[in-house]
Design a protein around this nucleic acid. Structure first.
Length: 939
RNA sequence: GCUCGAAUGGUGGAAUCGGUAGACACGAGGGACUUAAAAUCCCUUGCCCAGUGAUGGGCGUGUGGGUUCAAGUCCCACUUCGAGUACCA
């Protein structure tokens, strides 16, 4: 019988559905294992061959773990809120829900063809009210919490209120937007609105006036990780800085825990490093500088307190509140002009031209150590959002200060012995200090490191400043001026936000007539006619009923993309629970994700937000583990492999790749689907586009050979390969095998169909082991020979070890070797073949099921047990030694395994081949590496 | 600029603790079967030199040094490519 993959795959995919083979329930008698893929955004383009790479890798692992006796959770769902569906809605008027649904159905169809072991009963969609109920719920909980620095955890806001009522801000150590000071009396005297306003300074989800990345073309704000090179990640539109009132999440409060948590999880070093950089912890000192002839003083942050003797000027960020205070009347005109000019420059322009700009404020600050007066400047190279928005400039040892000093002719004082600062600053934190002494303090002669430590001690003792840790990580901006996202469960009473009652969740997304912003510039929800909250009946009512006494307007912003993806792994544990995000029982059974597979592009977005979100839930006991994703594997990107044809200029004649240099040609992208192994299907090409209908070809060897290049897989390059096409032609098992055989999972590589035949041939060969020359199923019950057993157990050992480390490509090689050996031996022994079938099931589940069934076993192969290898069968009586002289391999020798070193030495030395290398020389040393090498050092 | 990673045949890629390269696959060349094609099977395939031949010798993991009996693997310097990040004081 032939290997008919179409029938086999159709049959078993149906069997899995009918028998709910992949349904999983909590089972305390079995150890759990949680495998998760980053769920996809269902785009209109459907899946290309790059998408399933990670899914196949995790599917193999999930199936393997199940065969090993684990209760494996392997769910799938859709991150179904997002910009493309909304942009499409704006253009066509089509409701995003409709587009999204169509796309999901298409994705599902494509996924089903590949034979994944997902438990679809646990599917989640972020745009489903039953799901975003819990996104809104989490937001409400964050709104109702503050972060206590003493206990290092999120705490209900009621505790904070109690503290304020008793002692105001006395003894307060909490995360806050800005430091406030008030007494209990003051707090108690304030009205509700004022108190609410103050509480915003502490809430974990808070409404804050912040500088945001505003994208005019998209009409919305973007988070830092959604802005790339000053333009939006989606669409590439320019982004400008704008001050706006927005919902924010106090992610920064968790900076230290996010950093510390990295030590406890099993991620790649590079990913951890990326997160560390993003969090950007820097240890330094805050120092207070007095302003000359004034009561004003201000604080700066520096990591180089040791360079205090080299401070020759100060710089304020243009947005700093100090600018107004420190600008003298004489300088006011110049400063105003500068501020105006700065405001006009977008983020992008600032990055693009690195011109040094700045203006003198007119004021002088007093160096707290040297007591010298130094000028205070204003420049946009200092950022308002980092540290205190003010710096002490040490031009000799900071390149930016150096450039500034050079440009404005400010003094430069070298502080490190031997540092050449004639052309550039000396930024390295090394060397011996000089020029750093006065009557009170001397750093001269110390190394930079000693000097930093000494200064920290000094300023703390003298009360000039304090040791301070700063983080680059900023709070996440949580509002989007979009329609297709989770609505905030918030209404506004005289401008103060209030939560709708928890039991009224979910607050469902209303219908709108138009998906664009309103004419008044409000977000699309401004078009909703039924979008007001009735506090008496606790329900959504028409806007016309708003009376500001019992009926209030609801929030018009929606939540960003990362809201829905931040806790979805918890929802999979208990997807149909309408009482809680996840029940404590299920949460404590599944705990966290053991293996998370996805792309690196989420390193500073989703993977930070998710960890933050989980830590918040953990603080409240709603998630049992501190870290959500124990092990993370980043699958590489599959790039496209584009094909080109070469048209001779101004003609309709195309010349084959090898001959193109003889003509003046233009390379043109050609659809890779009409090219096979770089040979163009000429007929298909002529039909591809009308203008090529009558074209001519100059061939080589009767073939048209196309050129190729590795590019991003995209429609415009005509290099998108759909998995469906491969499945149709070779079957899902071949696709799965080939995607894994292409190379290490973590590595990026171009998609290249050229080698797929190898995997297809392998499966056919494997299939043929079970059939005789006449195509009849023919498996013998005879006892296997030692040779056959050895071949099998070599395979079992290799595959078991490889799967554990995701080295699937080498496992597949092992399968190929084993099948070749068995074919050579004409082995058709049941004892051998039935084990191999189980072993190959994770990789090629359809063919495995079919053979498992033909072998006479009942039920799905998923319920079989993973075979264990036995070292007994692998033992050899002889082992081949490489015999080297002075490290150079000369010949090999078969020796008994258990021969002792002395005998080995004697055997090697007495061997006649050895004689010619030893002749006339003295033997200095003999190194014996057991079972491998004998190296004789002669001289 | 900084941080991290990579570099191996015509191609994708193997190579555990440093253990004597190139597994496996593709492609290519040759052969068998066939009227023919497809499919299948067998042989060769890193480079160079010598030999009719079995075979023998030399060179080889981006470049240059080093450690070692032994280096693709470890150390130092450099080149190229990729990823992340960027006035973070």
């Amino acid at each position: 019988m032939e290997y008919n993959f179409r029938d086999i795959e159709r049959k078993w995919q149906q069997y899995w559905v009918d028998n709910k083979t992949y349904k999983v329930t909590e089972n305390p008698s079995k150890p759990k294992y949680y495998v998760l893929n980053m769920f996809p955004y269902p785009s209109g383009a459907g899946l290309h061959v790059g998408h399933p790479l990670g899914y196949i890798a995790s599917d193999i692992y999930a199936r393997y773990k199940r065969l090993q006796g684990f209760n494996v959770l392997n769910p799938m769902g859709y991150d179904s809120y997002g910009l493309p569906a909304e942009q499409y809605a704006i253009q066509t008027g089509q409701h995003p829900a409709i587009t999204t649904n169509q796309n999901i159905n298409r994705y599902r169809e494509q996924l089903d063809k590949i034979g994944f072991c997902f438990d679809w009963d646990r599917e989640v969609r972020t745009c489903d009210p039953g799901y975003y109920h819990w996104t809104q719920w989490a937001f409400q909980k964050m709104f109702g919490s503050f972060y206590c620095n003493k206990t290092q955890q999120a705490t209900p806001i009621a505790k904070l209120i109690a503290h304020f009522e008793k002692e105001g801000t006395e003894n307060l150590d909490v995360a806050q937007s800005e430091p406030l000071e008030f007494t209990a009396e003051e707090w108690n005297s304030w009205d509700e609105a004022r108190q609410q306003e103050v509480l915003m300074n502490y809430r974990i989800a808070y409404l804050g006036e912040t500088m945001v990345n505003w994208c005019p073309a998209l009409g919305t704000v973007l988070a830092n990780d959604e802005v790339v090179d000053g333009v939006s990640e989606r669409g590439g539109f320019p982004v400008v800085q704008k001050k706006m009132k927005q919902w924010c999440l106090r992610v920064s409060a968790y900076a230290q825990r996010l950093l510390d948590g990295l030590e406890t999880i099993d991620w790649t070093d590079s990913l951890k490093e990326t997160q560390r950089n993003w969090i950007g912890r820097s240890e330094g000192a805050e120092m207070v500088f007095k302003v000359k002839d004034s009561d004003v003083e201000f604080t700066i942050f520096t990591t180089r307190a040791d360079t205090i003797f080299g401070v020759t000027f100060m710089v304020l960020a243009p947005e700093s509140e100090l600018v107004a205070q420190l600008t003298t009347p004489e300088q006011k005109a110049a400063v105003d002009a500068y501020l105006e000019a700065t405001k006009k420059r977008t983020e992008r322009e600032r990055i693009a031209d690195k011109k040094v700009t700045g203006v003198f404020s007119g004021s002088y600050a007093i160096n707290p150590i040297t007591h010298e007066a130094i000028p205070v400047w204003i420049s946009d190279y200092v950022l308002a959002g980092y540290g205190t928005g003010a710096i002490m400039a040490v031009p000799a040892h900071d390149s930016r200060d150096y450039a500034f000093a050079r440009h404005f002719n400010l003094p430069i004082i070298p502080l490190i012995e031997g540092a050449d600062i004639s052309e550039e600053s000396f930024d390295a934190k090394e060397g011996i200090m000089m020029n750093s002494a006065n009557e009170g303090l001397s750093l001269n002669g110390l190394t930079v490191k000693e000097s930093i430590a000494a200064m920290k001690k000094y300023i703390t003792e003298k009360g000039i400043g304090k040791v301070k840790v700063n983080y680059r990580l900023r709070d996440a901006i949580f509002s989007r001026q979009r329609y297709w996202g989770e609505p905030f469960p918030v209404y506004y009473k005289e401008g103060t936000p209030y939560l709708i009652p928890e039991e009224c969740l979910p607050l469902e997304l209303p219908e709108v007539k138009d998906f664009k912003p309103t004419e008044a510039g409000e977000p699309p929800l401004g078009h909703a006619e039924v979008w007001a909250w009735d506090t008496v009946h606790n329900c959504v009512v028409a806007n016309s009923l708003i009376d500001q006494k019992t009926v209030f307007p609801l929030e018009l912003n929606t939540m960003p993309g990362f809201a829905g993806s931040s806790a979805y792994y918890l929802r999979y544990m208990d997807p149909h629970n309408d009482k809680a995000l996840v029940s404590p029982e299920k949460d404590s059974y599944w705990r966290n994700v053991d293996l998370y597979v996805g792309g690196t592009e989420h390193a500073t977005g989703h993977l930070i937000y998710s960890r933050f979100w989980n830590k918040f839930l953990h603080d409240n006991g709603w998630s049992v583990t501190e870290e959500p994703f124990q092990k993370l594997v980043n699958q590489g990107m599959i790039q496209g492999r584009s094909n080109f044809v070469y048209r001779i200029k101004d003609t309709n004649t195309f010349v084959s790749y090898g001959l193109r240099k003889e003509y003046d040609v233009t390379p043109i992208h050609v659809d890779v689907n009409i090219v096979s192994a770089d040979v163009l299907d000429i007929e298909a090409f002529r039909n591809w586009r009308p203008e090529y209908k009558d074209c001519e070809f100059i061939l080589e060897d009767d073939k048209y050979i196309c050129g190729w290049a590795v590019e991003k897989m995209s429609k415009s390059m005509y290099n998108v390969v759909n998995p469906d096409r491969i499945v149709e032609r070779y079957g899902a098992d071949t696709l799965r095998m080939y995607e894994m055989f292409l190379g290490p999972v973590e590595q990026s590589k171009p998609w290249d169909t050229n080698g797929i035949d190898g995997c297809f041939r392998f499966l056919k060969k494997f299939w043929n082991l079970f059939f005789d020359g006449n195509g009849n199923f023919c498996v013998s019950n005879d006892a296997p020979t030692p040779e056959e057993l050895k071949s099998l157990h070599k395979l079992l050992k290799k595959v078991t070890q490889d799967i554990e480390v995701f080295s699937y490509n080498t496992s597949i090689s092992a399968f190929m070797i084993c099948v070749n050996e068995l074919a050579q031996l004409k082995c058709n022994k049941r004892a051998i073949l039935s084990d191999i079938v189980v072993c190959i099931a994770p990789f090629a589940p359809h063919i495995a099921e079919e053979l498992h069934s033909l072998l006479g076993y009942e039920g799905s192969i998923c319920d079989a047990a993973w075979p264990k290898w036995n070292e007994e069968y692998l033992k050899e009586s002889n082992v081949t030694y490489s015999i080297s002289f002075n490290g150079k391999m000369r010949y090999t020798l078969d020796l008994p395994v258990d021969m002792d070193n002395k005998t080995i030495e004697e055997t090697v030395l007495s061997n006649e081949q050895s004689q010619k290398w030893i002749e006339g020389k003295t033997i200095r040393k003999i190194i014996i590496v057991p079972r491998k090498i004998v190296n004789v050092v002669v001289g």
